[in-house]
Amino acid sequence: MTAPIETTGSAAEAQPEAVLTGVKQSQIEGRSLGQIAWTRFKRDKVAVAGGIVVILLILLAVLSKPIQAFFGLDPNEFHQDLIDPALLAPKGDWGGMSWSHPLGVEPQYGRDIMTRIIEGSWVSLVVAVGATLLSVVIGVFFGVVSGFYGGWVDTVISRMMDTFLAFPLLLFAISISAALQDGAFGLEGLPLRIAVLIFVIGFFSWPYMGRIVRAQTMSLRNREFVEAARSLGARGPFILFRELLPNLVAPILVYSTLLIPSNILFEAGLSYLGVGIAPPQASWGGMLTNAIDFYRNDPMYMIVPGVAIFVTVLAFNLLGDGLRDALDPRSK
């Protein structure tokens, strides 16, 4: 049998802390969940690029009026001298592109396309973000209540979701928008149209968010932290808003970023059909509508707003996918 090795001196008295001699405490600090998610997100270069584009689009929409005022731009200014009267198309190549009009001018009237793209950006984002916020608020409330309480409450709310999903949303939006064009609720003109679009799109699309939140709530309501809150005497409202909602932030945020581009496309579609944003107010969907009659003589008039919609939708989708991967604790 091997005798135990005797140690003397400093070696025998060495403490575990000696292993970390010279190592600063800040180097072994843990990371929060937010820091971990941010690290994951930064690794996804495609999602970061999408986020940068989204930030630039938001800045463009917020600063559209100051930009136009600073450079003296007018989205409704006519340039008839740049239009060929025989073809009603811009003179020159590529839709009349020049240093004065980098994206060309529109047919028939000669209005600057770049200025109208800038003007239309805030309309599309205001409608999309407003409708998304409305649908998120309604969907989260009914979804978390339905998933937490269950029973007859879940049955009633679930059937209400099915009823809303059964509505032909496009036809209903067309009829409501057409019926309220003249004035309603003390509003008229552009504010009325924006308010109607936000209400129609947001109010009738909340069941999609509601179903996602309901499923997530049902998976969380029997977890240990919820049982611990119950054992301490917490009631339903406290558990809903202090325990469950913080754990639902990730799926709500991810789905919201994916819902915004869908609402942008829906607003563009309504404007395309003539029941969205009325001229002369610029909107990307309205520009596509006007381009139908001139796409043979001036294809750039259709390409430019189409690319603007495509880039915006793609950027939000890439950002949403990146956030989903970053906030998913099972991601590697």
Rank of each mutant, 00 (worst) to 15 (best):
residue 37 A to S: 07
residue 40 R to H: 14
residue 100 S to A: 15
residue 78 F to Q: 15
residue 17 E to L: 12
residue 40 R to P: 01
residue 26 S to H: 03
residue 78 F to V: 14
residue 13 E to C: 03
residue 51 G to N: 10
residue 16 P to E: 08
residue 35 Q to N: 12
residue 82 L to P: 00
residue 81 D to M: 09
residue 95 G to K: 05
residue 93 D to E: 15
residue 92 G to L: 10
residue 21 T to A: 14
residue 53 V to C: 02
residue 52 I to E: 05
residue 33 L to R: 13
residue 62 V to G: 03
residue 60 L to I: 10
residue 5 I to T: 12
residue 43 R to D: 05
residue 50 G to W: 15
residue 94 W to D: 11
residue 3 A to T: 11
residue 74 D to S: 06
residue 4 P to L: 08
residue 70 F to H: 06
residue 44 D to N: 14
residue 10 S to P: 04
residue 28 I to D: 04
residue 18 A to F: 05
residue 18 A to W: 12
residue 64 S to Y: 02
residue 80 Q to W: 14
residue 71 F to R: 01
residue 2 T to P: 13
residue 14 A to E: 10
residue 96 G to K: 00
residue 64 S to T: 00
residue 18 A to C: 02
residue 98 S to W: 01
residue 7 T to M: 06
residue 88 L to K: 14
residue 4 P to N: 03
residue 17 E to V: 14
residue 48 V to W: 07
residue 50 G to P: 04
residue 22 G to K: 03
residue 2 T to C: 08
residue 89 A to S: 08
residue 36 I to G: 02
residue 11 A to G: 08
residue 97 M to K: 06
residue 54 V to W: 07
residue 51 G to L: 06
residue 59 L to T: 05
residue 37 A to R: 13
residue 51 G to V: 03
residue 81 D to Y: 10
residue 68 Q to T: 03
residue 50 G to F: 05
residue 22 G to D: 05
residue 24 K to V: 01
residue 34 G to E: 08
residue 83 I to M: 05
residue 55 I to T: 07
residue 60 L to H: 08
residue 75 P to R: 09
residue 43 R to G: 08
residue 10 S to Q: 11
residue 83 I to F: 06
residue 46 V to Q: 14
residue 76 N to Q: 12
residue 32 S to E: 08
residue 33 L to E: 15
residue 76 N to M: 08
residue 58 I to L: 15
residue 58 I to H: 04
residue 77 E to K: 15
residue 65 K to L: 09
residue 3 A to K: 12
residue 56 L to K: 01
residue 58 I to V: 14
residue 66 P to N: 06
residue 98 S to T: 06
